[in-house]
């Protein structure tokens, strides 16, 4: 690791005053919470901040469930949220996404806020031996577009970056129309999670709407008619401790055998957590008949662009949607 100054502020206000910023490689100061991703990035010299500001003990870690829905303090760990009774019963897609992420050790350390801000697994981003990475070094080019891009995104991409967002949790949360409470020196604001991550465009080094001196304080998940019958399907190269090749988060409101309303989001295929409203609209009012589901799922492929090694994801994500809906639909 490069040398950095570690700040251990007494309270959140002092931490915000350092104006650190998550998810930008050109930020001179960055926050650290659970550290499971940050320490790796520091070890690999992907991040070389001058200053690291520790949020240990400064953020809310409570999990609250009520008639309005769920509120997850940013410091709540993946492990605690995954087994919280209200999450398991009322928002199973969140629990499943978390229990299919990482390992017991990492889930004990990693936080909600940090999970949403973890950096891409693009091997070119993670290996400083490759000079060209627009996300790591703005303007340096993209090694993945003509490289080994089996793991990369097929939607939301640009000519500058095709790195996939790696979070399972974020996919489940986007399907449930979650939001994030941000806290900064200037006060508090609320951002729907779907608007929190930025598309790469020609600035792939800026990953979220966070301003300097702003942190995620909490995640809110509204109560809904669909959350209880929800499911997270993760397709990956091995059965545990692996990121998604493709994943689908679905939530259904059923009226007998008919879908009253559906929420569908995809992981492993997007440069950000990817909700598919057209698929949702096509599913509404329909049955669980496989042919019907298949037709709706096909709409997810609209605008998708493979880059060679990842072409298979376009077909696989449609199948994942169908399978996930069948599983969720079969739930009581």
């Amino acid at each position: 690791m490069h040398t950095f100054i570690l700040e251990r502020p007494r309270d959140l206000a002092a931490a915000l005053a350092f104006h650190a910023q998550a998810g930008r490689n050109d930020a001179p100061a960055e926050y650290i919470a659970g550290g499971t991703d940050m320490v790796q990035l520091l070890q690999e010299h992907v991040r070389r901040p001058e200053r690291l500001v520790s949020l240990a003990g400064l953020l809310d870690g409570h999990i609250e469930a009520g008639p309005q829905g769920l509120r997850l303090g940013a410091a709540a760990t993946m492990a605690d949220v995954a087994v919280h009774p209200a999450v398991v019963e009322q928002f199973p897609v969140i629990s499943e996404a978390l229990l299919n992420s990482a390992s017991p050790q990492v889930r004990n350390q990693a936080t909600m806020g940090g999970n949403l801000l973890q950096r891409t697994r693009c091997p070119y981003f993670r290996d400083v031996g490759y000079a060209a990475c627009n996300k790591r070094s703005p303007g340096s080019g993209c090694s993945a577009i003509d490289g080994e891009n089996r793991w990369h995104a097929v939607v939301g991409t640009s000519d500058d970056c095709i790195a996939a967002n790696p979070s399972d949790l974020a996919v489940a949360l986007v399907a449930l129309e979650a939001g994030v409470e941000l806290r900064g020196a200037g006060g508090q604001r609320f951002v729907p999670l779907i608007d929190f991550h930025r598309l790469p465009g020609n600035t792939p080094h800026i990953e979220s709407v966070l301003e300097p001196g702003e942190v995620i304080a909490a995640i809110t998940v509204p109560a809904s008619s669909t959350a209880r019958r929800s499911h997270y399907l993760k397709v990956r190269d091995r059965a545990s401790f692996e990121f998604a090749v493709v994943s689908a988060a679905v939530a259904l409101d059923m009226d007998g055998g008919r879908i009253r309303a559906a929420r569908v989001a995809l992981g492993g295929v997007g440069t950000k957590p990817w909700r598919v409203p057209k698929v949702e609209a096509a599913l509404a009012g329909g049955s669980l008949d496989p042919a019907v589901l298949r037709r709706a799922a096909a709409l997810a492929a609209e605008g998708a662009q493979g880059r060679g090694h990842n072409d298979f994801k376009i077909e696989l994500m449609q199948r994942a949607i169908v399978r996930a809906i069948e599983t969720a639909g079969a739930r009581a």
Binding site: G35, Q43, S54, A79, S103, P104, Q105, V106, N108, Q109
Partner: peptide, 22 residues
């Protein structure tokens, strides 16, 4: 890098990878 668990310890009773902890 947190993959192998050979560095596992507990912190306040929670199992963690000590290689991923400052």
């Amino acid at each position: 890098s947190g993959d192998c668990g050979a560095c596992s310890i507990t912190v306040d009773g929670r199992l963690v990878c000590s290689c991923l902890m400052l």
